[in-house]
């Protein structure tokens, strides 16, 4: 069976599924299909892996098992009329604070913003996919744009598909925005395709450090100023306790008016708390 191009295979991006040119030019121009890990000859290209192509003489491939340059937690909350996302601007190479001005929040279109933690190069690839989707909408020029919910759904499919191919995109993504009808959307998807929507989300270390604060202080009808204050407090806590973070942050807002990504800023910090001087004093079992 010949691999049959489907429209979504193109939308899922080059190398993910299906042939690159969705419109076959003609039999004359078509090359015979070459099997790849992503596109085995079985024909079920979008949903299966050909094991013989994944495995080499050296055994199963392992280069997908570690991230290299990573970003840490992303925090986001809903508030009255929009979503606010925040994260620092570090790209860490292992424990080295290698790139200190990496912007990890992108604007997808007028209604949607995406932020990412995890492997930066994978996020840059995802950025390209999303750019292409936005360009497709622009090309069609019919006044229809992907809403945040659709972008979120798309990303969950991409992430799960790649995980299913044993070649995951090493990211935690946060999608926020406002639908055409004014509903506020916030969701997150992880590297293996797990996803959920909530009034507040935090990835990575933030899930432990920031979410307790969110549970206490966040409400969907809180003001923009309150939301920003909450995020700043949460960022500060994350910065105190997460060695993979730096004191340079960005906050982005997605509202009915559009997406605004703020300039990087630093937070006031205070390091002379007594508990900081003897960090293991109250932590039983620590050394």
């Amino acid at each position: 069976m010949l691999p049959r191009p489907t429209t979504h295979s193109k939308a899922l991006g080059p190398g993910v599924a299906g042939p690159e040119l969705a419109v076959a030019t003609s039999a004359v121009l078509d090359r015979p299909p070459q099997p790849t890990a992503q596109r085995p000859l079985s024909g079920a290209q979008a949903f299966s892996v050909d094991p013989s192509l994944v495995e080499s003489a050296d055994g199963p491939r392992q280069h997908t098992q570690y991230p290299y340059v990573t970003g840490t937690s992303v925090l986001a909350v809903k508030y009255a009329g929009g979503v606010m996302l925040a994260c620092d601007t570090l790209g860490a190479y292992g424990s080295t604070k290698r790139y200190k001005s990496l912007e990890r929040i992108i604007r997808v279109n007028a209604r949607t913003a995406v932020a990412a933690g995890g492997e930066i190069s994978d996020f840059q690839y995802i950025t390209r996919l999303l750019e292409e989707l936005a360009t497709d909408d622009y090309r069609t020029d019919d006044g229809i744009e992907l809403g945040p919910r659709e972008v979120f759904s798309y990303l969950t499919r991409v992430m799960y598909n790649r995980r299913g191919k044993m070649d995951p995109l090493w990211n935690s993504l946060v999608v926020g925005g406002v639908e055409a009808d004014g509903t506020v959307f916030l969701g997150t998807v992880g590297m293996i395709g797990t996803h959920y929507t909530d009034s507040h989300v935090a990835t990575g270390f933030g899930a432990h450090l920031a979410r307790p604060m969110f549970r206490e202080r966040q409400s969907d009808d809180m003001s923009e100023a309150d939301a920003e204050a909450l995020l700043r407090d949460a960022l500060r806590v994350c910065y105190y306790r997460d060695k993979q973070s730096i004191n340079k942050f960005q906050v982005a807002k997605a509202t009915g008016e559009g997406v605004a990504i703020g300039k990087p800023f630093a937070l006031e910090t205070k390091w002379d708390y007594k508990a900081f001087a003897a960090p293991t004093k109250w932590a039983i079992g620590a050394w």
């Binding site: 489907t6 429209t7 979504h8 939308a11 899922l12 069609t140 019919d142 229809i144 992907l146 809403g147 919910r149 659709e150 759904s153 798309y154 499919r157």
Partner: peptide, 15 residues
């Protein structure tokens, strides 16, 4: 169906 699978929304008619 493909559109629904990927975007969880209905496909624009014109497209």
């Amino acid at each position: 169906l493909n559109h629904r699978y990927v975007y969880e929304s209905s496909m624009p008619i014109g497209r």
